[in-house]
Design a protein around this nucleic acid. Sequence first.
DNA 1: TATGAATGAGGTTTCATTCAT
DNA 2: TATGAATGAAACCTCATTCAT
Lengths: 205, 205, 205, 205
Amino acid sequence: MANRAALRAKSPHLAKKQDRRRDEVLDAAAAVFAAKGFHDATTRDIADRLGLLPGSLYYYVESKEAAFAEVCRRRGEGFNARLAAILAAPGSLEDRLRAGLLQHMLHNRADLVSTIAMSERALPGWRDLRALGRLYQRLWERVFRAGIAARELPRDFDCRAAALALLALCNGAVHATENKPPREIARLAARFADYFLNGALPRPA
Amino acid sequence: MANRAALRAKSPHLAKKQDRRRDEVLDAAAAVFAAKGFHDATTRDIADRLGLLPGSLYYYVESKEAAFAEVCRRRGEGFNARLAAILAAPGSLEDRLRAGLLQHMLHNRADLVSTIAMSERALPGWRDLRALGRLYQRLWERVFRAGIAARELPRDFDCRAAALALLALCNGAVHATENKPPREIARLAARFADYFLNGALPRPA
Amino acid sequence: MANRAALRAKSPHLAKKQDRRRDEVLDAAAAVFAAKGFHDATTRDIADRLGLLPGSLYYYVESKEAAFAEVCRRRGEGFNARLAAILAAPGSLEDRLRAGLLQHMLHNRADLVSTIAMSERALPGWRDLRALGRLYQRLWERVFRAGIAARELPRDFDCRAAALALLALCNGAVHATENKPPREIARLAARFADYFLNGALPRPA
Amino acid sequence: MANRAALRAKSPHLAKKQDRRRDEVLDAAAAVFAAKGFHDATTRDIADRLGLLPGSLYYYVESKEAAFAEVCRRRGEGFNARLAAILAAPGSLEDRLRAGLLQHMLHNRADLVSTIAMSERALPGWRDLRALGRLYQRLWERVFRAGIAARELPRDFDCRAAALALLALCNGAVHATENKPPREIARLAARFADYFLNGALPRPA
DNA sequence: TATGAATGAGGTTTCATTCAT
DNA sequence: TATGAATGAAACCTCATTCAT
């Protein structure tokens, strides 16, 4: 049953406008999901933000679940891509760790959705989302392994534990940095990096 | 709706029995909240665990929200009390930090509810819960301040940032330690403590 | 909502082209109604078949209900006309009955819509549709009455019961003949005619 | 997670009362389905008939679909059982056919739901329902085959076509017998039986 | 002390329909 | 002539909660 309408090439202009509106819808969804979590976010919340009625969302989105999954996928992929770029850049191991941690904490708010996705069990598309999360963790692990290969780190360095700790530091500050200016976030990120790299306590002489 | 049982004068024996049953109900609620989060947990889930029907819960509890709030309060207070005891115990600063971190990570699973409370916004009783959370953070801060007073830490030590980092490490591993035996959790806790105390990276000689 | 096109004075050529398109729309509607029934057929189903969007249908049709009613009317009238022609043709009573029954069963599939109309209560335009159905039944009755007049049938022949029985045989095989080749349908029609004319059971000698 | 409440043996009296109420609900559903068909029947229709709110139905029934499936199953099985009993009874082939046809037409109204199930495509539980329908047809076929074995029917008797014709006669009169008194239905059933057994037309001498 | 039955508010979703462009 | 966007009503369903027993 060929759908002539669907096949007819849409003018690129129109197509772009449609996509933009769709993005607006997904952004609104993301904002609400970030604010309330998946279960407590209602389609009405999302629609209100756009001046639409709940039913109208379905013109752009298949279901609440699908919207959530797509939002998370997009954010998660962006997150991963940014970290990958940072960790692959030239520079000392320390520099790259600091940069990665900083970007995570700076983007955390906007990408709060990913955080939700990681923390709520039994969510739609949970499997794929966990995969994205694991990938993120692997990125950190890989940079440590490269450090071992480059003899910047000892042979027995526990890459997994270190990655976990870094991730914990990244995520743990979400609440503390809410509504804080970037400068302050950066300051905290630097502190966290210091702790991770050199330890928080003064060294015994 | 006043609790009929509460109005009746009770023999101490009866009162105790009732309280025990109430505790069972709250424990069941805690377990379900921990497993599913507040919104996804149904009164039926809780009732099932006790061999009751949903309506019967209301003999012990005013509402789902009230149950959640109380569960969180109890767990949170227990959590705080344990940490306070540990931090107040004699021993070096390092020892106390290690002990505090360890107990947090070991109890995290059972007390997952607090974690939920901290992570889901717009939850009933959220205000009070945040207060408990802040208190927990203050406990860590206080031990650092004591460290400064005792000259174990430098004058300009950033107590708040350090407390935040420790909390982040404590909470960040929740997912990594799910379904793991205590031994392994302890191992990870020790690693995290090492990172925090001495830094993860090898020190330049 | 007045049809804008209808208000405009149209050239005969244009008018014809419009009507053709309208017929296409109604045909598509008929096909979908036949396949899914009235309630389960969506305007999107119909539009898809034509490469249109749902809203565009309303250029040709006032509403889904109106479309259904018109489709049924058209099909029903065609059905009636064909039966009338057959029953009015010269030939023995038996021949005409056989021919009528055959054409009904052969066209049943294509005209399934009428069947739907007859079977679903509380349908739009139901009254008119029932009228068409009654007319169809009357056509059969009339041929029997003519048979009485021509003394081919006894005076007390129950024309109504006979018409009902014939109709029942006609319609009852819809499911059995779905997806069957015309040959097989014709074979079954012949059998049914035999039963009706001579009885299914062997005659006592 | 053993459900003590569910395991606790309910008093037989209570259990029976519950079942009765459930039957009432299913009966109401059956009535509405029969009157409007599955798609057009709303949960509100059913609930209204019982003086309940729509949501309350779900105390007794899992879903609208499940209710429909169960209603059809029950009616269909009853229908089959009655026919089986009739066809298995002693008596001449003719007697049994007459009796079977009569009971079908008399019960048709009450069991209209089965008819719906047979006629609406793409219905929940459609597969199982078709199976029930096929079983019914087989019952008729089997009695003919027994007739062949007993030499009451010729070797080449077309059992399937005969069964189809009988079924068609049974079902075809549904609309004609609506709101008619049993006497009249019985009269029509007798006529139909005559037609099937001996033919409608006078025999050439 | 607990149950069975019911409520009612609210949630997601579908879909016929409208209308400016 | 047809589209894209949106509406709004109504559908099914869930669930915390109530209350007579």
